[in-house]
Amino acid sequence: MKTKRLKLKLVSPLSILSVFLTLFLWYSLSEDGLKIISAIKFPPPTQVFESIEFLGFKIFTDIFATSARVLFGLIVGTILGCVVGAMIVFSRRTGEFLNPIIEGSRPVPVIAMIPFFLMWFGIEEPGKLFLVTIGVFMIVVVNVSESIRNVPKLYIQAAQTLGASTRIIRKRIIFPAIIPALIGPLRVAVALTFTLVVAAEFMGAQNGIGYRILEARRLFYPQVILLGIIQLGILASIFDAVLQRTMGRITRWSGRESK
């Protein structure tokens, strides 16, 4: 029944209509249609499709490279954010020690640190991965510590009076209780990760969608730039959908409306 509902949602007529309308608008305004916008300023659909053929296998290596960086940043940043966020709440001393560093560096855009990353790591992979991981970490750490503080005391007291140890309370009460509150921040983190990966690929890379966009700008291939943007849009939507599906399954107890 669930699969049926999902299929129905995937083929929602309104969604199909919105995609077709956008494509139609693009086609009509571009040089393929009414020639209102020149191909230099905004390439027509035919040119973008031609650029797929032009790039060939590179498209797949770019998608793979960008996805791998996004995935690494998301996984490592989330794990680190969860561990440190929990430590801040569970240990008063750790909280007092780490809070000024985290709170002081959180408002600084991670992108501002790119020059340092270039000096430290050059254009090598660790610099890019580090940048993305820090971006995700900063979002997750604050949300985890806030969510832990917001876990209803009632559940913790109930567990205590049922004989649960601190370790059991953390693992079986606090951890599951905060997951619904992390879905929103994680979705924000996915979007930010793509921004950071593209920025990291701009600062120097040998592959990746961001690198391909920068290269196309230098060689003046606007159709490749647009193709890159479309690829990023589709990829980010897939990541977001997978995240929502996964979190929806994990939190199926909560009554949260899944997408």
Partner: peptide, 10 residues
């Protein structure tokens, strides 16, 4: 407890 304290994730 007076309030609903059944763990909703179990």
């Amino acid at each position: 407890f007076q309030m609903d304290a059944v763990f909703p994730w179990m």
